[in-house]
Write a protein that binds this DNA or RNA. Structure first.
Lengths: 192, 192, 192, 192
DNA sequence: CATGAATGAGCTTTCATTCAT
DNA sequence: AATGAATGAAAGCTCATTCAT
């Protein structure tokens, strides 16, 4: 009836998709995947059930797309290749890590929540494993550069530590000494 | 007057209860709480639906009793008050921790699974927090005794590290370098 | 082991039966038949499930025996054949009716509750019908004796009125003008 | 923009809702509320379980909406404000009452059935009480106009009588002398 | 692109009843 | 006479998903 250009359609598509994904993140990251219903998402997004299923094949597809979107956004973030000084780089990693945790609480909660759904979502654990391996290699490389003793072992410790802190922060949130830990780590691992 | 003595009844009760709890642990710790149905539990336990509800008010009560039983069993385990030498004590903690993780994989998976069910099971996070605080104090005390530098900070790191290792082991299991980490930690923290 | 006479057994039987029936009346007459469970009855009576089923074949049999016991107790009550004066007799009927309603609230509630369970308990409506026919004949007879105009019609009205008052009292209880109605009826129908 | 107009949806909604409510009335008013299952209703209505719960939050909500719909329909019916002559008005009330009872047997059975479910559905007794008070005032007013002796008392009698007749008709139905009572009442209370 | 009516498999839970002792 | 463990059919309800328009 009313002619619309391809771009307009594209924009509308993207807006609706965005609305749905935002709502899904909010809900899945707050109440958890299993305790959030498609009806919840659709209501919060302000779209109809039909439209939701127009964009996403099913609930699992929705969460899959959501996770991949999130990962694409934050992937490059942790490792800033512009920095050359390894000490600076390590400090940057710590800072980025803590900031990321604070800023995107819902997102990390969601990921942990999904990964802990046993049986379902094995792909998420695979993804996490890949990322861990990357981080491991990257951090070991830095530790070598700054002559840290036993860099291979220390890298393993650090990566486990990152997950431990994330996990504890997600569980205990306000009761958790996150800021303190940030200082502790920087003091311990980064020369001033 | 009574054709079955109270003791007999008590024994029967305990046996049935045990069968159900074992089945529940197996399932909840493998497929997760939400993905296991009461029908699954009852079939695996080899009892009827009615009997299950005779002993447990509902699904949540079942998991609650299960968790409390588990915690009571493993509570005293981590900290052996018989050991006096702090170095020995620390080494013992590491060894116990890794052994516990390996031996009771299902149990720890269940606890992590429950704690990650947002909204529901907040009491489990509370329980975990309490245990973390205890561990924190206990480990700091040991670190002081062995003159480890900045023991307060290091205790926080260690406790987070424990959770990180648990978490990663639960997620990556066979792909995970658990044995390696055990050696690394003992080498790093315990004088021979 | 300990020899008991037949009488002793009989007494024990009767006591247990009585306990159960009392509990059943209390519950069925308060929460209704469908909303009371056998477990409720057994707990309130302080006996075991097995014993209950030893005395009563099933839930419906329990309520049947209960109702027949009640009816046997109150049947002869309404019509006092000792009184000869018809005016006195009519007054007595009114008085007895209101007193009965006040004293055995639970019992009448139970009967109304059962009769209103459609499909089930048709025998109770049959019983009620028989009683109504009896009352009709009896009251018409009295009205004839006191020369009340159109006694056949008036008897029908009175019998319906009795049920109407019972019904309204059962539903509205404390809000209901029962005492007032007693006076009204006596004033209207009985010469002083 | 929208392939089905709001009116179309509204019509579909209303039709389905009506189908369900009709089925519910039929069943609840025949077998009683407790003895009718949601599956029964859904089958008789020819809709799916899901749709039923799409329109009604739960079984109690279904019966609530049903009752309120019924009451809204029949509320104004009893009292015809167009009639001025009090004798005519009284006669009209009797006629309407008996007609209503005959025509909407199921509805009145349902109301009585619900009101007799002790504990649950207290709101229905409240509703009934309100209606009784209204009827009381209205009938007294008429009795005053036609100079009936002691109109206040007689109104109370009449209102109880109405309930008594309803109740007996619901219980004894075919065995009950309903037509006879209609004539009796009109003859007794209405001047020709 | 967008709507919401419609479906039904599958879940938790209840409760009358049986039975070995 | 008396116990309470054990059963399972059947109930109410949820929710991902489909589909006609």
């Amino acid at each position: 009836m009313c002619p619309k250009t391809k771009d307009q359609f594209e924009q509308i598509r993207e807006e609706s998709r965005e609305k749905i994904l935002n709502a899904a993140l909010k809900l899945f990251g707050t109440k958890g995947y299993e305790h959030s219903t498609i009806a919840d998402v659709m209501k919060l997004a302000g779209v109809s059930k039909g439209l939701l299923y127009h964009y996403f094949a099913n609930k699992e597809d929705l969460v899959k797309q959501l996770v991949f979107d999130l990962i694409n956004k934050t992937d490059a973030l942790l490792f800033d290749h512009a920095i050359i000084d390894p000490n600076q780089l390590l400090k940057n990693i710590f800072t980025q890590f803590f900031q990321e945790l604070r800023n995107n609480f819902e997102q990390w909660t969601l990921l942990a929540n999904l990964g802990m759904q046993l049986g379902k979502f094995d792909w998420i654990r695979q993804l996490a494993n890949d990322q861990m391996q990357q981080a491991l290699a990257y951090i070991e490389e830095i530790l070598i550069k700054i002559d840290w003793p036993d860099p291979c072992a220390e890298a393993k410790i650090l990566v486990a530590l990152f997950d431990g802190i994330s996990f504890q922060y997600l569980w205990f949130k306000k009761d958790y000494h996150l800021d303190e830990l940030e200082n502790i780590l920087i003091n311990k691992y980064c020369k001033q």
